[in-house]
């Protein structure tokens, strides 16, 4: 045990000097500790605290990258504040999401949601996608607000996130959306995704209502094809 602790100390020291090209085997004790603390909450919390300390210190981008990967596996609410500060940083936003997206606590979702107000452009695209990937129903209102964003990538990411969340509220927001033209196809795709979720839940009338709106001749062929298939699937379901 003492031997393991010494190896972990040494690995954490190596992590502070870690950079691209460094020997990654020096970090193996951290990898081993991630596995061995699986059923030891106290030891895992201690490991997490050490990693947070590295994240908050002046270390290379690669070292922070490494810590975020580890926190994706073992991070808890305790990691959220440190990770949240990185969301607005161009170089580190993605790896912060890499961890936050996988941390199940409500605080992780809150941090991502709060970041929507502070980031824009590609970083906002990333945050929206992480909320969508989490299936965060509590974020529907904030995500829906981005549907009208002038940046088509942001509007598309918002639509995609709602298509991942697929709640009735998400479907309503998508139905009411008036995005810029470049984001329209992903809005429709997400509406189709919501209809599929309704079908899976046995809410055939709700699903059919979406399909009926999209089957009309004014829609592109691919959308009509999807809506036709959807209506057919509704009819195939036994009541």
């Amino acid at each position: 045990m003492a031997d393991d602790a010494a190896k972990l100390d040494s690995a954490c020291e190596a992590l502070k000097a870690y950079n691209w090209g460094a020997d990654k085997n020096a970090l193996q004790p951290i990898e081993d500790a991630i596995v061995s603390t699986s059923s030891d909450a106290a030891a895992r919390a201690a490991l997490e605290a050490r990693l947070i300390a590295v994240l908050e210190s002046d270390v290379s981008r690669d070292a922070k990258d490494y810590v975020c990967r580890a926190l994706a596996v073992i991070g808890s609410t305790a990691s959220v504040p440190s990770l949240a500060t990185l969301l607005a940083k161009e170089e580190l936003s993605h790896m912060a999401r890499f961890a936050l997206e996988r941390i199940p606590s409500v605080q992780a979702a809150d941090a991502l949601r709060a970041a929507l107000a502070t980031v824009s452009g590609d970083l906002k695209v990333g945050v929206l996608s992480s909320l969508g990937n989490r299936g965060d129903a509590a974020s529907v209102t904030q995500i829906a607000a981005a549907l009208g964003d002038a940046d088509s990538k942001v509007a598309a990411a918002a639509a995609a996130a709602l298509g991942s969340i697929r709640t009735p509220e998400a479907a309503k927001a998508l139905a009411a959306a008036k995005p810029i033209a470049a984001a329209m196809s992903i809005v429709i795709d997400s509406r189709l995704a919501c209809a599929e979720a309704f079908l899976a839940q046995g809410k055939m009338e709700d699903a059919r209502a979406i399909y009926m709106l999209l089957v009309g001749e004014s829609n592109p062929k691919l959308i009509r094809l999807a809506a036709t298939r959807g209506i057919q699937t509704c009819l195939e379901q036994k009541r």
């Binding site: 062929k221 094809l225 036709t228 298939r229 209506i231 057919q232 009819l235 195939e236 009541r239």
Partner: peptide, 27 residues
């Protein structure tokens, strides 16, 4: 519902568009 489905499928597979016919064949 079944009558509607059969009619829809018949309509689809009698059509000229290969993609829509394929949707009918799925049913």
């Amino acid at each position: 519902q079944q009558d509607e489905l059969i009619k829809m499928v018949a309509d689809l597979i009698s059509g000229e568009d290969k993609d829509f016919r394929a949707v009918g064949f799925e049913s």
